[in-house]
Design a protein around this nucleic acid. Sequence first.
DNA 1: TCGCTAAAGCAACGATGTTTGCTTTTCGGA
DNA 2: TCCGAAAAGCAAACATCGTTGCTTTAGCGA
Lengths: 194, 194
Amino acid sequence: MSTPNRRTRRPGGRSARVQAAVYAAVGELVSEGHRDSVTVPQVAERAGVNPTSVYRRWGSIDALLSEVAVAALTGDEPLPDTGTIVGDLQEWASIIAADITRPQRIVYLRAMVGARVGIPGACPCWDVREQQAESMLGRAADRGETVPTVRQVLEHVIAPLYHHVVFGLDVDDDYAHHLVDDVLAMSVRVPAGS
Amino acid sequence: MSTPNRRTRRPGGRSARVQAAVYAAVGELVSEGHRDSVTVPQVAERAGVNPTSVYRRWGSIDALLSEVAVAALTGDEPLPDTGTIVGDLQEWASIIAADITRPQRIVYLRAMVGARVGIPGACPCWDVREQQAESMLGRAADRGETVPTVRQVLEHVIAPLYHHVVFGLDVDDDYAHHLVDDVLAMSVRVPAGS
DNA sequence: TCGCTAAAGCAACGATGTTTGCTTTTCGGA
DNA sequence: TCCGAAAAGCAAACATCGTTGCTTTAGCGA
C-alpha cells in the first residue's frame, strides 16, 4: 500500500506552516480572553491564513478548538516524587488544580465539552492522567505502601477536579488535598486476620 | 422603595404566557434531539413568539438554555429508601446515572457548562443533590450505620458521574455502583483498639 | 528536473443570526 | 375607568458565518 494515512499525505512545508500558524492563533486568541466567540474567520485572520483552508481542514471551530485543546491539555508536567504516595498524590493534585483553573485551560475544557458531541471514546487527556497515576502508584507499591487502584485515583481525584472546574465551582489546594485523603482512605482495609 | 426587583415588574398575563411558551419550546426542541444548533429564531418560532422578545429578555441562546436547564435538572425524583445505606446509595446512583445519560439531559448539561462563564457560585442542581444525600445519610446514621460524609458522597459519586457524562465517557449501572462501593470504603476504618 | 496532485488562496453567494428604531399591545396602579 | 410604562411585535438593516467552484501554489515522487 502506498496510500498514506490521509492527514499525513503531505506533511511538508506549507501544510505544516499553516497548521502551526493556526494553532498559534488559537492559542493567542484563547489566551487573550476572547473566551467565547472564537470563530473560524478570526482564527484565520490572526494566522494569516484563508478561512477556507481552516474550514476544509478542520470543518468547524469546535473541532479545531478541541484538537488544540488536547495538545494543550496533555503537555506533561514533571511527575512529583516525594518518597510517599501521600506526598506524590497531593503534589500531583495541587499541580493539576493550579493548571486547570487557569482561564485559558477553562476555555479549552469548555471547548472539549462542547465538541464532544457524537465523539465516542475517551480523549487522550485521560490517558495521560492514567499513565501518571500508574507510574506513581507503581512506585509506591514497589516500596510496599498500601495504595488505591488507578481507577480509584482517576474517579475520585481527577474526575472531581475537572467537574468542579467545568461547572464553575471552587477549586483550591485544600480541596485537592481532601480528595487525596479520601482516596487513600479507600485503600485502608481491616487486615483479614486482625 | 417602590422599585420592584426587575424581572418581577410585570409578571402578569402576557409576560408569563411568553415565558411559558418559550420554556416549552426549548423543552420540545431539546427533546426532539436537535442536540446542537438550538437557535433563538427556532425557539421563537416554535413558541409563536417574536425572536426579538427572546433576545431582549434572555440575551442569548446559552442564557436561555441554562435557565431552562436548571429548572429541568432540579426536578426531583423520589428518594430511594431500601433500609440500608448501601442500597439507598446504589439505587440513587443508578437513578441519577440513568437520568443524566438521556440525550436531552446531556444537552442541558452542555448548555450549563457553556453558559457558566463569569457566573460564580454554585447552581441549584448541586443543592438538590446535597439535600438528597443529607437525607439518606441522616436516616442511615439514625439507624446506627457507619456512613460517609455528605461532602464525600457529592465529591465521589455525584462529581464523577457528571464528569463522565459531560466528557462523553461511559456511564452505566456498574460504574455507578463502583463509585458507591468506593465511597463506602472511605467510612470503614480500622477500629482504634483492634 | 518535471509533472502530478494535495492543499491553500480567492471571490462571490446564500443563509442565518443579531441588532435597532419604532409601533402596538396590555398589565397594573391611581 | 383611565393613564403611564413595560414588554411584545414588526420590519428592515446589519453583520457574519459557512459553502462552493475555480485558480494558483508548492510538496514530493518519478
